[in-house]
Amino acid sequence: MKTVITASGNSVDTQFDKRFGRAAWFCVLDEDTNETLFFDNANISASNGAGTKAAEKMVELGVKKVISGDFGPKAKDLLDKFDIQMVIIQDDDLAVKDIIKKIKH
């Protein structure tokens, strides 16, 4: 199963990004093989619709779970429609690898 974690850089040591539509990078974690892939966010400086575009990207990547700090109303609607689970974490100082560790216990 694929999970996306929003990240501020392209490695697991970087901080988790609390924004969804304007996250710098998306870390795609395959929960079965533990592999991570990083995609940069093309819509980071879009004036509007960043959340929608990011949500479309999630659908395209076929992920089942998205972990971020907040979801805008449009992104939430879209992710709901495609049955993608949303997870909100409000801790500030987490690195991507900490979150991966949490998922894996």
Binding site: D80, D83, I84, Q85, M86, V87, I88, Q90, K102
Partner: peptide
């Protein structure tokens, strides 16, 4: 336990 918030889609 971990204070996270999340949705549960109907397929789950």
């Amino acid at each position: 336990d971990c204070n996270s918030r999340f949705t549960i889609p109907k397929t789950m």
